[in-house]
Design a protein around this nucleic acid. Structure first.
Lengths: 98, 98
DNA sequence: AGGGATAGTTACGCAGAGGTAACCGGTTTA
DNA sequence: TAAACCGGTTACCTCTGCGTAACTATCCCT
């Protein structure tokens, strides 16, 4: 568990992953997650890539195009994240009020 | 997803929850998670309590006894955490090498 | 009377996570 | 010729998460 948190620890990582249900360009990600700065978005994507969760594909075009997608391993996280979301939206009233 | 991260964001919270498969006293938790300071442990437990995930029961004894346990809502997280652990231990070789 | 056990709280300080703003390089478009 | 597009990178600064250490209250035991 502690190690799992090491890989998914950044407060943005699970959010980034949940946006990668399909391949997306860097600009698309930055636009949809306007709360995260470009710098941090780049950093987290690099780390996810190192951990084998995300695949980065750069096309030698102009203007540049870079697509991010989930690896097999990363895709395996999606159903778990859905369960997490479902869990959270099922919060009992006493907690939801807070 | 963003909100879910708000609730489970602290890097210790999921770890704390995974230790609460059964009711535990504060001292037990502090002992098992020696890497987390007592101060932060208290803070995170309070937040988990506010979010309806953890129940805190203080006994009017001396020396004081306080037991923490998961609510129904919190207990529903356990199977999901197990899946997360399983996912991580199934990391492909390319990622595991890093 | 003094010490130990439990479950904290408080004050203080630091490191690192994250934000902001400016800049870059190659190519197309006006 | 200049500007726009895209995907960054870099320097700098701020803020917050977390750690350490000291302190507290209550009761029991010696």
């Amino acid at each position: 568990m502690t190690r799992t948190m090491g890989v998914l620890g950044g407060k943005w990582k699970l959010i980034i992953i949940s946006y990668l249900t399909q391949p997306r360009r860097f600009g698309q990600l930055a636009q949809r997650m306007s709360l995260i700065s470009r710098k941090v978005l780049t950093e987290q994507l690099r780390e996810l890539e190192e951990d084998g969760i995300v695949r980065r594909e750069a096309f030698a075009e102009a203007p540049p195009r870079v697509e991010y997608s989930l690896t097999e391993y990363g895709r395996a996280l999606l159903p778990i994240l859905e369960q997490l979301s479902a869990w959270h939206s099922a919060a009992p009233a006493t907690a939801a009020v807070q």
